[in-house]
Design a protein around this nucleic acid. Structure first.
Length: 465
RNA sequence: GGCCCUAUCGUCUAACGGUUAGGACGCCGGCUUUUCAAGCCGUUAAUCCGGGUUCGAUUCCCGGUAGGGUCACCA
């Protein structure tokens, strides 16, 4: 009988969605979807101090943006306190849990001493001989049943192991009545039937504790798949908020496409067979496999993210891109400009910027600068004047209705080629756009129409004089 | 300090004992109907070091080195 795959994403509500967490969520989601399994969203809100209001909405919005839908949840651990108490009681009954008799200060002094002696701190060295019954005012600690070496399989790393030092009597229930992560996540994974746990490297060293707890609870542990870390752009440090890591939704605000983000994140620490780089969400689901997840950490390279994003923009139809851009800038976009912006902008943010600063030639009255008009022209002012005059003359011969960019090109281009392209086309382009950077003069003329085109050319002529 | 993990171009990665070590991003250069963008073509660039095993190691083993993780009433 094949067991159905169940994965989960279990963030804590800190108000910040870092890309590392998102990538872990993505892999868990990809695997669940690929296997036709279940993906659970669970909120690990057992630390009341760190909880930030609105986090749960923030998490859900982030996942929705990326298109990572969940089948169950959000399940809040804070709603399940009685459950953890029940499971804790089982451990107490079996003699695998006891009340911690020490004060926080006392434990702290043990820790300090161990640190000074350069030994790892192990609470179990201070295990009380006959602890009082747990009344809920003191932390409840797990009594590790057997101090031994652990070895287990990781779907990404292969066989992993740890010595006895990794085992300790950790806290199950805090003195405020809330369970710790160490306890709650295991109870939940058991109750929710989680089969595959995707998680960060930082949990490798605590795995023996988890395994020990599974044994005490007589439950079968899930499969573990350790994800590689995502590192900051400089150095080898983990990408963190402190080093300027952005919240996921900041990328949305900058105009990245969710499918591009998913594509980029999937390729950070995973690679399918073959040399394809651009994938749709569905293609990723098809191609995904845990076996091809990378072991070593990967740097988050925004340059490549930009490229991936641009590739996805290029894949969009003009209509689709126009719709996204409109939604992004919250205003209508001149249809004629859409294809021009689409090939230039790597993000919707860039598109908005280009529209505002470079492609405003349709509306505004260009300001002319003689130096700029002549800058790229490989001819004297007097010659340029002659060329433009001739261009005006040629364009006057084109009918109003037939004044398309193709028609403009047809009459101007041969002439420009004859006398020197740059000498005609550069000043013409500047005359029409007023900008050093712009689309080509034919496109501009077609967009502006005959009347405006001629007006602008004449005005430029008067400036050159 | 203990325990643990990792190691191919600057970056993301391919090559699961035999390749001129491949691709992509970026960089640089060139081409294309002027600028910018796009497009096309091309150049540069890597197996951390030392031992084994083997006819043959990027690949397997051991040891270094480097980087990282962890040792919370945080997750």
């Amino acid at each position: 009988m094949k067991q159905e795959v169940v994965t989960r994403f279990a963030p804590s509500p800190t108000g910040f969605m870092h890309v590392g967490g998102v990538r872990t969520a993505l892999f868990a989601w990809l695997y669940a979807r690929k296997q036709g399994g279940t993906f659970i969203l669970r909120i690990e809100d057992t630390d009341r101090e760190r909880e930030v209001a609105g986090s749960i909405e923030h998490i859900q919005e982030s996942l929705k943006w990326l298109g990572l839908d969940w089948d169950q949840g959000p399940i809040k651990q804070s709603d399940r306190l009685p459950t953890y108490k029940t499971w804790a009681q089982r451990l107490i009954d079996k003699g695998y849990a006891y009340a911690d008799p020490y004060t926080e200060e006392e434990v702290e002094s043990f820790r300090k001493k161990a640190e000074e002696e350069k030994h790892p701190f192990l609470y179990r060295n201070h295990r009380p001989e006959s602890p009082a019954a747990w009344d809920g005012t003191k932390p409840l600690r797990f009594k590790v049943p057997a101090i031994k070496r652990f070895e287990w399989n990781d779907l990404v790393r292969g066989t992993l192991s740890a010595g006895e030092e990794a085992l300790d009597d950790f806290i199950l229930i805090k003195s405020d009545g809330y369970p710790t992560y160490n306890f709650a996540h295991i109870v939940d994974d058991i109750e929710m039937g989680v089969t595959h746990v995707m998680r960060g490297e930082e949990f490798i060293s605590s795995t023996p504790k988890f395994l020990s707890l599974y044994e005490a609870l007589e439950a079968v542990p899930p499969q573990f798949a350790t994800m590689p870390v995502i590192l900051g752009p400089d150095g080898n440090k983990k990408l963190s908020k402190r080093d300027g890591a952005k919240d996921l939704l900041e990328y949305r605000a900058e105009g990245y496409l969710p499918e591009a983000m998913v594509n980029f994140l999937a390729l950070l620490g995973w690679h399918p067979e073959g040399e394809q780089e651009i994938f749709s969400r569905e293609e990723l689901v098809q191609a995904f496999s845990i076996e091809r997840v990378q072991k070593s950490g990967a740097k988050f390279d925004e340059q490549k993210l930009l490229w991936v994003n641009h590739e996805h923009i290029k894949k969009l139809s003009e209509e689709a891109f126009a719709k996204r851009l409109k939604d992004f800038i919250q205003q209508e976009v001149e249809p004629a400009l859409v294809p021009l912006v689409k090939e230039r902008a790597q993000t919707l943010g860039q598109a908005a910027q280009i529209l505002k600063t470079e492609f405003d030639f349709l509306s505004g009255e260009p300001m002319y600068d003689k130096d700029l008009l002549l800058k790229g022209a490989k001819a004297e002012a007097a010659d340029v004047q002659n060329y433009l005059t001739k261009a005006v003359e040629l364009l006057s011969g084109v009918s109003d209705e037939g004044f398309t960019s193709e028609a403009v090109k047809e009459v101007v281009f041969p002439y420009a080629t004859e006398v020197g392209r740059a000498s005609v086309l550069w000043p013409m382009r500047i005359a029409l756009s007023g900008k050093e950077k712009s689309p080509d003069p034919f496109t501009l003329a077609g967009l502006l129409g005959k009347k405006t085109t001629l007006e602008r050319l004449n005005k430029a002529l008067s400036v050159i004089k």
